[in-house]
Structure formats: C-alpha cells, structure tokens
Design a protein around this nucleic acid. Structure first.
Length: 372
RNA sequence: GCGUUGUUGGUGAAGUGGUUAACACAUCGGAUUGUGGUUCCGACACGCGUGGGUUCGAUUCCCACACAGCGCC
C-alpha cells in the first residue's frame, strides 16, 4: 500500500500528524537522518533506531553508481540490503543536479541531466524516468520526483524555465512510476519568486502526488528569503498530504518550518557536524575540538537521554575526534540525530498542547543567545 | 687532539646580501542545511645556535666559541 497521512491536530499552521507506511508508522513533524549510501554514516541500523528517528533518507544517484540498483533489487530491496526495516525515503538525484552539474545550460537538458560520475568520471545521463525506475527497484517507501534545485540567485527567466521543466519532469516521472507499494512525492520549485512558487505548487498538486516537498531552499538565499519561499508555496498544498521541507535541519529552521506547516525534514547536518566534531545543544552548537573541552568530564548535555550523553564525556569524545577515531563521529552522530528527533518530539507535544508558539520562542531564545 | 659537515618555529624541513622566512604535520580558531566531506577556510618563527666583524643593510659573507654527526691519530 501507499503511505497514509493522518492530520491529528493543528496549532495555527503547525501540524501534528501520523504517517503509515509498509515499514511502520511515525509521527510528524519528524526529522529524517540522511543515509546516502544505504547507511547513516558511522551508525548501525540499531543505533539509528535508538535515536527514534521515524524514517531515514537514502540516495538514488549514489546507489545507482554503486553498487547499482540491480544489486539492491537482487538483495531484496533497500530495506533488506541495509538491514533496516523502518521507513525509507529516497531522494531522486535532483540535488546532485545542483551540486554536480557544473555547467547548468550545457548539462541540464529537456531529456535529463548529464553528469560526470564523481567515482570514475564517466559521462552519465539521469532522466526523470530513470530516476523513478531506479527508485522502484530500490523499493523505498517514498520516492521523490526528479527535479532541478535552482541555484540562488537565479534570474527570473532561468527560474521560470527551470520550474516549468521540473513540472514536465514530475509528470514524466509519475507516468513512469510502477511500484504499487511505493509512494511518490512531488517537489515544488520556483526559486525565490513568489509567483513561480505559487505556479509550481498549484501545477504540482494537480498531478496528485502522495506528498509534496518544498525544494530549492537552503542554497545560500538567507533565512528571511528561505522562510518566504516556504510561505509562498505551502499555502497551495492540500491539508491531507504530508509536506516535506528538503535539506533543512538547523534547529531554528525546523521550528520556522513547523510553524508554517511542514511535517518532514531531512538534513546531513547532524551527521556531518558530528564527523567534524560539532554537537548540537540547547544552548547552541559547540565544537568539541575546542581546547576548553580537553578536561571537561561532563556529558555534552546533562539532561539528554541519548546513549552518548549517558555514557561519555566531552573530554573523551574530543580525544576520539582529534585522534581521528570513527567512534567519535559515531557518538556525536547519535547525539546530534537524537537532538533533532527529540526537538521534533517536543514540538509535537507543544502542538498537542496548543502552545507551539511559546515553545518555539523559548527554544530560540536559549539557542540564539549562544550563537556567536 | 686534528680534520670535516651541520646547527632555521612544537616537529620535519625549504630558502635568500635588502619589501610579509616557503611548504607539511602538530596546535589554536571558524565554516558546514535534499552528503563528490578522514572536507573547506583562517591563525601560528618580532626571528634563522651564541658572541663579534664586514656592509647602507646579514638568517644569508668572515672570525671565534658552543653543541651534534662523521673520519683519523
């Protein structure tokens, strides 16, 4: 079966909900850790589950190149392949258009996008149909439409033609979709232009996807612009389908997204920051590489319920990170993911009690005071 | 004792008679938003073994001394 979304409660635009999938149910708002290459970097599936993340993201482009979607299919699908039986969403490769296609005009064509493989440099063509076919074989619970993430800034003409092309790609992908157990989300683009966001949202919704995501944000546009991009699109999305804000994972941005009616978030931030020695705390981000933690034998956060905070000190984690030991990245990933998932848990409680605004203000005040 | 080579930052080292003494590692900061990430960007020798001399100017040339390596008695 396809996923099913249930809207439980609203507090202004903030939504409390539930998503049923073939691999379990999770509540929204929810944060999804990123597991690009069929693994959340440095974590076992058990460790991921222990963070209470309800769903994880994996990547079409990367698995297409290695090991190849047919290998995953032979393994029995992505869940079996990576030994993870919870919900999985696969990104379409659209973001790699943004990050890998060097020359937009030359590499992005109507038929699809020409890449040079980052592994061996060979020329590749990823099309909307192929992206969907790959995702069908990967057998994720939720597949994403193949889109172009428009850079910022982009002139109106480019943004318009790109947005229109993404709509045509969405239609082609939907027509090619052939996995009855897999849901498919459409992606709203439109750059930073209000009318294009509206147009993109309305046209995408007409195609009747199982969920809608807002793409093309956090590409260097600045917070105010990003929040407006969400506002400009989200009002045209149906209440009975999940909304997913792609690539966003700063705690404050999650709160701003929820306030506007977003249900799902994904981001590489918790795992990437972890590998680079940074940890989220309610008082802002901290850098464990800083010398002041050398003899700090307290946990990252005293009141955090994650495995890392229950058993390890900043001093020890700092030692692991400065010694380049993977366990450092593992312990920090556990904490950082748990931090964001816990944030969404508190958000859900707040919405349930209809005091989301108050919760948000308090959180931001505490967090922001320590951003230097 | 004689001869010989060398002595540059926390470390390994490049280099030049004259503006900021390479580069790397370590250290210390910062960045990081649908992961091309053991990544990226900064800071870091007020001084080139010590003391004299030559020179407008010496880390670079000369002398002495100290220390280290090598060879010979």
């Amino acid at each position: 079966m396809k996923i099913k979304y249930e809207l439980t409660k609203k507090d202004n635009n903030a939504r409390l909900g539930k998503i049923y999938t073939n691999h379990g149910t999770f509540e929204t708002p929810m944060f999804m850790p990123v597991g690009t290459l069929a693994n959340v970097k440095t974590l076992t599936p058990e460790q991921v589950k222990a963070t209470h993340a309800g769903i994880i993201l994996s990547n079409t482009y990367h698995l297409w190149l290695r090991p190849g979607e047919d290998v995953v299919k032979k393994a029995g699908g992505l869940h079996k392949f990576m030994n993870y039986d919870g919900p999985i969403l696969t990104d379409s490769g659209g973001f790699q258009v943004f990050s890998l296609a060097k020359n937009k005009k030359k590499d992005i064509k109507e038929e699809g996008v020409y890449f040079k493989s980052h592994i061996d440099g060979r020329e590749l063509l990823l099309t909307p149909e192929l992206s969907i076919q790959i995702q069908n074989k990967l057998d994720s619970d939720i597949a994403m439409s193949f889109d172009e993430c428009i850079p910022y800034p982009a002139d109106y003409e480019y943004a318009k033609s790109s947005t229109e092309r993404t709509l045509r790609w969405a239609k082609r992908g939907k027509d090619a979709h052939q996995n009855e157990k897999q849901s498919l989300f459409g992606i709203i683009q439109g750059g930073a232009y209000e009318d294009l966001r509206k147009y993109s949202a309305i046209e995408t919704v007409k195609m009747d996807f199982d969920g809608y995501s807002i793409g093309g944000t956090s590409v260097g546009e600045g917070k105010t612009t990003m929040y407006k991009m969400i506002d400009d699109a989200i009002k045209y999305l149906p209440e009975d389908k999940p909304r997913y804000l792609m690539g966003v994972g700063e705690p404050i941005d999650i709160l701003e997204g929820v306030e506007r009616g977003i249900d799902m978030f994904d981001c590489v931030l918790p795992t990437r920051l972890a590998r680079h020695g940074n940890a989220f705390t309610k008082e802002g981000k901290i850098n464990l590489k800083n010398a002041k933690y050398k003899e700090d034998f307290s946990p990252i956060e005293n009141d955090c319920d994650c495995y890392t905070c229950k058993h390890y000190t900043k001093s020890y984690i700092r030692h692991l990170i400065t010694s380049n030991e993977v366990l450092g990245g593992t312990l920090l990933s556990i904490h950082n993911i748990r931090f964001l998932v816990h944030l969404t848990e508190e958000i859900r409680d707040a919405i349930n009690q209809k005091n989301f605004q108050e919760y948000k203000q308090k959180f931001i005040e505490k967090y922001k005071n320590n951003i230097h």
